[in-house]
């Protein structure tokens, strides 16, 4: 083989390797999460923009995690109680999700509705979930947004009887994430 060809084939192989395996990972470290609790006495809302997530488009694998203490509340005392009394964030610092995206059409750059199946770990309790989400692959970016509901008792988050009018039993969670190709 001519040296130039050797060099070229070497280059091509490296390129192929990168194309073949490196391209399909997408990441974000600033996914936005918001949750709402609607109860007779007060509506509680909190948000974090520090969600971390990775998608492998080739396998459909998706992983997500957020530190509980990054959620910001309107009232600082509420935030302290959220961490201290309900989520016990010293013991369980993160909420995480691991799963697979189903029926993704990677040839389309339009918004599509997909199903994400996996396990949600919250307050140390892992539960199987199935979440519908809006997915859009465009320009080496993925936009993912979804709204789903988490029941406090599914994750052993106890609400004192005295406060049932202040805190809802099911919490609505909204996720907004923009992934960049790695």
């Amino acid at each position: 083989m001519h040296p130039t060809y050797r060099f070229l084939s070497f280059l091509i192989i490296i390129l192929m390797v990168n194309v073949g395996f490196g391209q399909e990972l997408y990441q974000t470290t600033s996914a936005e999460l918001e949750f709402y609790s609607e109860a007779p006495i007060e509506d509680i809302k909190a948000a974090s923009n520090k969600g971390i997530s990775v998608i492998n488009l080739e396998t459909g694998a998706i992983a997500f995690q957020v530190k509980i203490n990054t959620f910001q509340f309107e009232k600082a005392l509420m935030q302290e109680h959220f961490n201290e009394n309900y989520m016990e964030s010293e013991k369980f610092p993160k909420a995480s999700f691991k799963g697979k995206m189903q029926n993704v059409d990677i040839s389309s750059n339009r918004e599509q509705v997909i199903i994400i199946k996996g396990t949600l770990t919250l307050h140390g309790v892992t539960k199987e979930v199935e979440i519908p989400a809006n997915f859009q692959l465009n320009n080496n970016q993925i936009k993912l947004n979804t709204t789903f509901v988490v029941a406090c008792k599914d994750h052993n988050i106890k609400i004192p009887k005295l406060l049932w009018q202040n805190i809802a039993e099911t919490i609505q969670v909204q996720l907004n994430a923009n992934y960049q190709k790695t």
């Binding site: 070497f10 490196g22 990972l25 492998n56 694998a61 998706i62 995690q65």
Partner: peptide, 27 residues
């Protein structure tokens, strides 16, 4: 070349979802 190919491909494959998550979660 073959060895190089395997080396590179393993490097790239090991950079999968979990390891990238761990890397991003470094606080």
């Amino acid at each position: 070349l073959l060895i190089a190919f395997f080396l590179f491909s393993t490097v790239c494959i090991s950079q999968d979802v979990d390891s990238l998550m761990n890397e991003l979660a470094q606080d």
